[in-house]
């Protein structure tokens, strides 16, 4: 009648996905880091545009 714990909770799926989750969050930081660098460069050179 009741599903067993392993039917409902898929621990093996979590162990598969944990590295992807870690890489995903790290990936957001890497892309954002590149964007921050790009924005600083823009600030440095872009300000000459209004002169």
């Amino acid at each position: 009648m009741f599903e067993s714990f392993t039917d409902v909770i898929h621990l093996e799926s979590m162990t598969d996905i944990l590295p992807a989750a870690g890489y995903g969050w790290l990936g957001v930081f890497i892309v954002t880091g590149v964007l921050v660098a790009a924005v600083y460069l823009l600030g440095m050179f872009g300000s000459k545009g209004d002169k």
Binding site: H10, D16, A21, G24, W25, V28, F29, V31, V36, V39
Partner: peptide
């Protein structure tokens, strides 16, 4: 521009939930 780092940091919930939801 350094404020953008906190935007990235606050996506933590997505990846934490991904791990939990995969259960």
């Amino acid at each position: 521009p350094k404020l953008m780092i906190f935007g990235a940091a606050a996506q933590f919930g997505i990846f934490f939930t991904l791990s939990v939801a995969s259960l």
